[in-house]
């Protein structure tokens, strides 16, 4: 079954479910299916139990962080400049809010096909970061969803044991997010370059300010 067919099967089987196909530009050609949050759990259950699909094996769960993006476009507007109507360029900025994403790679051990890539997206990156957990459907997602929770901060509703897994419990940040700032713990390196050089500069600026503590 190709992705189009899976999409229409899902639409037919689950009322209200509206999966979208997310295309992939790479030669791998692994396109994916974006499920909406409300119907994701039922849809996943369907994908597992449907006799032709039979995706009984959830191989991989990945967290993704997409930052807010800002696109600017130039538009021509007419304005009154010094009493004369003129056409001027105005830069309009549109902010698309970012989101967190969970990606599941599903295979079928029975039918030996796959992968079907399923994506779920949160509403934003800050306060509404809930997604349905697939652990009740595929046990293999248990530790991986905990990891995504730990490192990205997606809260999986319905997960039996959602705790931090890799970092300690007292830790507060989500280090795999793109905007994570690590504690300033820079140490001398003989050949810093690129990102390390930037860190070195920042660290130096900090410690050379009067209230800065030396290293």
């Amino acid at each position: 079954m190709n992705l189009e067919e899976i999409k229409s099967t899902l639409e037919a089987a689950i009322p209200g479910c509206s999966p979208q196909i997310v295309t992939n530009g790479s030669p791998s050609g692994q396109h994916s299916l974006l499920l909406d949050r409300e119907h994701a759990f039922v849809a996943a259950m369907f994908l597992r139990d449907d006799p032709t699909l039979c995706l009984d094996y959830c191989s991989n769960v990945t967290g993704l962080d997409w930052l807010d993006t800002e696109t600017s476009e130039k538009v021509k507007v007419t304005q009154l400049v010094d009493g004369v109507e003129k056409e001027v360029d105005e830069v309009r900025k549109t902010r698309t809010p970012g989101y967190l994403e969970a990606v599941y790679h599903l295979y079928s051990m029975q039918k030996k096909h796959g992968p079907l890539v399923v994506r779920l997206r949160t509403e934003n990156r800050t306060d509404s970061v809930h997604l349905p957990s697939f652990t009740p459907i595929w046990r293999s997602a248990e530790f991986q969803e905990r990891e995504v929770f730990d490192l990205f901060g997606i809260i999986f509703d319905g997960h039996p044991d959602l705790r931090r897994i890799l970092m300690w419990d007292e830790f507060e940040d989500h280090p795999m997010r793109k905007d994570y700032v690590e504690p300033d713990d820079y140490e001398y390196e003989p050949t810093p370059h690129d990102a390390v050089l930037k860190k070195a500069l920042e660290h130096r600026n900090r410690i050379s300010t009067p209230d800065g503590q030396g290293a």
Binding site: N24, G25, S26, S28
Partner: peptide, 10 residues
């Protein structure tokens, strides 16, 4: 620099 896209290999 690969083209934008994604891949899962195993």
């Amino acid at each position: 620099r690969p083209k934008p896209g994604e891949a899962y290999g195993r």
